[in-house]
Amino acid sequence: MSYSMWIILTASLVGLSCGLIGVFLILRKQAMMADGISHTVLLGIVLAYMVTQEVSGPAMLIGGIFAGILTAFLVQTLSSLKVRHDASLGIVFTSLFAIGVILISTSVGNVHLDVKHALMGEITFIPFTTMDIPLIGSIPKATALLLLVLLVVIFFIVAFYKEWKITSFDAALAASLGIPVIFFHYLFMTLVSVTTVASFDAVGAILVVAMLITPAAAAYLWTDKLIVMLFLSGGFGVLSAIIGYWIATWLDTSISGSMALATGCIFFVTFLLSPKHGLISRLVRPAELREEQEA
């Protein structure tokens, strides 16, 4: 496969996994948690590097899971101590991120890790680091990692589909039925973390937030069915990846930046055209229908 095909494939995998996870971030009203975790996984990755002295996929995943759960746990603890939830998140993620930045520049400097790379990602270099997988052949390491994470994400979404639905919609009922709501909260944070870590190399910490939230927010405006929202959101993620690559080649600019721009464009088009919530449908809808819906 050519370099550009690998890049498009990798970007699409980012779009797909982030799109699926993003649906639940939006529905659980935890979009800002993604912002937090996308930063704190940096600490996890740095710690993983310090322990293993190499940049390897599995170690990074474990480090990221550790950082993600630590973030969720600290935010929960602070809010239970009467700090406002949004403030708790602001305190926790900036502090953990700062520790990560300091560790990068003092302890592990001059390796593959650096702050700019962590924030922006560099998908262009992904095809250069490959590994051999039996039967498939040589594929880029980051792509393999993303593929693995995508399978994990899909597995958990399918296996616990009704549990995700009920804990997202009505956590109190779920708890009264004996469904372990707290366990699912942390499992979800783990999934957000692994998705973020795997996407890290490709799009970086800041743009992964765009990939996590924007396609799902757009999908939310198109449909009234959870299952459709999942497919749409994943689809928008992949579409953003492809459009983003195309914009980047055309303007000769950053691929990850263009991908984020593409998610924004898709959201904007949705906002104008969506049948139920869109700006245009609101303007052209007959007045009596509008009244009935608002009543």
């Binding site: 529905l27 009203k29 009704k162 549990e163 639905k165 009920i166 997202s168 919609f169 009505d170 109190a172 009922l173 779920a174 039925l177 004996g178 469904i179 939310y220 449909t223 009234d224 069915k225 959870l226 459709v228 929202m229």
Partner: peptide, 22 residues
């Protein structure tokens, strides 16, 4: 206590009452 904009229909919400037994 719940978000009524959640993408689901009435029948589905009622079915949730059975999730503990399923």
């Amino acid at each position: 206590s719940v978000d009524w904009d959640f993408p689901t229909d009435a029948l589905d919400v009622v079915t949730m009452g059975l999730y503990g037994k399923i």
